[in-house]
Write a protein that binds this DNA or RNA. Structure first.
Length: 315
RNA sequence: CGCGGGGUAGAGCAGUUCGGUAGCUCGUCGGGCUCAUAACCCGGAGGUCGAGGGUUCAAGUCCCUCCCCCGCAA
């Protein structure tokens, strides 16, 4: 069985490796073009590209696969295409190329949390269970027929970064199971229930600005869900934006949202929310590195009494 | 050459402008107070100031070279 793999970030790497380990012939890998990244704007390959090259698999990096990648894909004559966080929309022309079809590994329990950031949104919405779904890709956005699903519990306090790392290998496992099932004819294609469906948008940087009028629970969930990108920030003093890496719910002593309840090395940093209060455990000041809030306060005495409320930004 | 910040005691920082005894908060160790304590008081230990070279009577501080870390932007 000739397979072509399409993926970009770290999430897809375990799936690609699993395909190879399971003995499938991976004829080619499509991934997003290298982009200037990091300090000095060096060009960096995507994690999937690095992996593919290490495995000696030909790599293709069309800017828009549905425009300049069609011929390359067709030449590979795939029996099956597999996508895992590829980052580009596939056209019907692309979907028609593989003989069997295109299987997508999606990190939510479809039809819930369609969209490009399902892990982040599930955490932000306060879910305690999510999972991975394999589906036959169709022209809609995560609307294709469902093949297999696996539930995974979201651990208390878990961040999107941690959950993504946990879900990636589970997705890889499910992918192999799915393909074997397709080959054996034991996997059914189940239409998605549109009444159960939900779609959540791409993440935007502004979503990280903390609205202190929300409840402490909501704020903490958002902080977890937006880690590591775009991260959650609040503003105090002379417009200094502080990034919150880790936070937990705390008691509010009847103060108004945004009021700083304490900010010193002994008691840590606690800020009043709309309901309850938020204890900032780990933070990062502009130009600084990520550190424990108490460590930060040791060298940076804080005289402010409140932080800016800002407004929740929806997608 | 995309823009910028930084490396000083176990942790977080000040000191560098204008060279002249190595400081602060915390931790740690010892002692004291207390029914008790993460609280308070007293005392101590702990630093080749990222590396190398240069200037100087004298360099954390000035000059040159190098290494490492981090933020923004994507």
């Amino acid at each position: 069985m000739r397979v072509v793999f399409l993926g970009t970030p770290e999430f897809g790497v375990p799936s690609l490796k699993a395909l190879v380990n399971a003995g499938y012939e991976v004829a080619g890998v499509f991934t997003q073009p290298d982009k200037p990244k990091g300090r000095g704007n060096k060009m960096l390959p995507s994690p999937v590209k690095s992996c593919a090259m290490a495995l000696g698999i030909p790599v293709f990096q069309p800017v828009k696969i549905r425009v300049d990648g069609v011929n390359d894909l067709r030449d590979l004559r795939p029996d099956l295409c597999v996508t895992a966080a590829f980052g580009q929309i596939l056209s019907q022309e692309i979907l028609d190329i593989p003989r069997i079809g295109t299987v997508n590994v999606h990190s939510s329990l479809l039809p819930k949390y369609r969209g490009s950031a399902p892990i982040n949104w599930a955490i932000m919405e306060g879910e305690t269970v999510t999972g991975v779904t394999t589906m036959m890709t169709d022209k809609g956005l995560d609307t294709g027929n469902i093949l297999l699903k696996r539930e995974v519990a979201i651990l208390p306090g878990e961040t999107a970064e941690e959950l993504t790392a946990r879900l990636a290998p589970i997705g890889a496992e499910l992918l192999i199971e799915t393909i074997r099932g397709l080959e054996a004819g034991t996997v059914r294609r189940v239409k998605q229930d549109e009444n159960e469906a939900s779609y959540f948008p791409m993440l935007k940087k502004e979503m990280g600005e903390i609205d202190w009028r929300l409840s402490a629970h909501q704020i903490v969930c958002r902080v977890r869900g937006l880690t590591p990108w775009p991260g959650s920030t609040f503003t105090w003093g002379g417009g200094e934006a502080v990034k919150v890496w880790k936070a937990e719910e705390a008691e509010n002593l009847g103060k108004v949202p945004g009021e700083i309840l304490c900010a010193d090395a002994k008691n840590g940093l606690v800020i009043a929310a709309g309901e309850g209060a938020v204890r900032v455990i780990e933070l990062q000041a502009p130009g600084g590195k990520r550190m424990n809030a108490k460590d930060y306060l040791r060298g940076h005495p804080v005289s402010y009494t409140e932080v800016e409320l800002t407004e929740e930004k929806h997608g």
